[in-house]
Amino acid sequence: MGPLDKYILKDDALEATKNGFQLKFQSHWYRALPLSCMDFNLKINGKEIDKNTFKIKANGNEYRYDELPELDKEWLFVLDRGILEVEQPLEKGKEYEVEFKYDLYIPYILAGSQAVPLLASSVAYKNLICQ
């Protein structure tokens, strides 16, 4: 949604793994937030990946997608990258069209009549070569 969006996906963000691939992402907010304040949507070549197959990694720890809202103690520092891991094979060296929607629920800005965390949503589109 703003200038910090350009840092979400770096050129080396997409990487093949033993069982599939991983996507490394950086926050588009100016300060660290914990995983409980985050949500993700990922499309590869226009095809949406089932969120329930995501494994989310931060600071060397690994979580399931449905664990996210409770992870208020797992911080992602603004200069560190988190990882989404998916068990779906991608070909090393091949270019993929990546559409990554990265939602942040800002915990100190409460908006609307229900005073809920402000949603700051950004979408990063990038053609990435699988590393």
């Binding site: 208020d72 100190y108 409460l110 005073a115």
Partner: peptide, 12 residues
């Protein structure tokens, strides 16, 4: 400091 009262998203 940040006063992150909405840190659990669904529960203040």
């Amino acid at each position: 400091a940040n006063i992150d009262v909405g840190i659990k998203r669904h529960q203040k």
